[in-house]
């Protein structure tokens, strides 16, 4: 394991009188893909928003690359690429304009930006449709553009919230390849939220299972299998492990 890139300690978020995130402590190490699992409303998105400094924790601490997101959100946001669960675009812009706008918000110098835009479009396979208005994009194209928006920042950390939501099988497998490449080619540290457990099992080095705001388990899939089903039971799939935790909670 490398150095911890993301660390949280007793991270808690209360909305009204409901604990959306309840004393969550976990670490993500350099170059790994960490899968954040849990049923709807478990608090996954809330954790991600706190890591980004987009929402303030009620209590507890978070650190991303040594920086506290509540103290210096700008610095953290510069280093993190974020793909929201329901990403939106300005529908009257084309892909290049969208990417340029994001680049400008990140103060990327013009020349560098143009190069990065071209490269990012190529990686996600949108060169052909780069001049098409985003309003006319399909769901899959929009998700790929969202990934391109993340790429032009060249972040060290990527937070991906449901990156395959609403994608067909083909688009899903393309997205999985792209995420794999982020890790392999760019050595990004990735937190991935998803309900698509097959993908999580394929991509993630370690997973954390959240239920009702609490992190009920974390570790490699093998460790979790051992924990739940006993020694020598490493071949259990993530789905079976997850269901066991879910039913117990």
């Amino acid at each position: 394991m490398g150095n911890p890139v993301i660390e949280t300690e007793e991270l808690t978020k209360v909305y009204g009188n409901q604990k959306a995130v309840d004393s969550v402590t976990f670490s993500v190490y350099e170059g790994e893909i960490f899968g954040l699992l849990g049923p709807n409303g478990a608090g996954k998105t809330t954790v991600i928003l706190m890591l980004l400094g987009l929402t303030e924790p009620t209590s507890g601490k978070a650190k991303v690359l040594g920086v506290d997101p509540t103290r210096d959100a700008i610095k953290v946001k510069r280093m993190i690429g974020y793909m929201p669960e329901n990403v939106g675009f300005y529908n009257d812009m084309n892909a290049i304009q969208s990417l340029r706008f994001i680049g400008e918000l990140n103060s990327i110098p013009e020349k560098v930006l143009e190069e990065r835009i071209e490269k990012a479009l190529q990686i996600v396979g949108l060169e052909q449709d780069a001049k098409k208005k985003v309003g006319a994009y399909s769901r899959g194209m929009r998700q790929r553009l969202a990934l391109a928006e993340l790429l032009i920042k060249e972040p060290k950390v990527a937070l991906l919230d449901e990156p395959t939501l609403g994608l067909d099988p083909d688009a899903t497998s393309k997205m999985i390849e792209l995420i794999e490449a982020l890790k392999k080619d760019k050595n990004m540290t990735i937190v991935l939220c998803s309900h698509y457990l097959e993908m999580v099992q394929k991509l993630c080095d370690r997973v954390g299972i959240m239920i009702k705001g609490k992190m009920v388990a974390q570790g490699t899939i093998e460790t979790l299998a051992k924990e739940k089903f006993g020694m020598g039971q490493e071949e259990y799939t993530l789905e079976e492990i997850y269901m066991k935790y879910f039913l117990e909670a």
Partner: peptide, 17 residues
């Protein structure tokens, strides 16, 4: 309008105040 289209959250996730 930007809230509803989901663009506001995206912009605010960029390094700007």
């Amino acid at each position: 309008r930007e809230k509803n289209e989901g663009t506001l959250g995206k912009i605010l996730a960029q390094p700007i105040y």
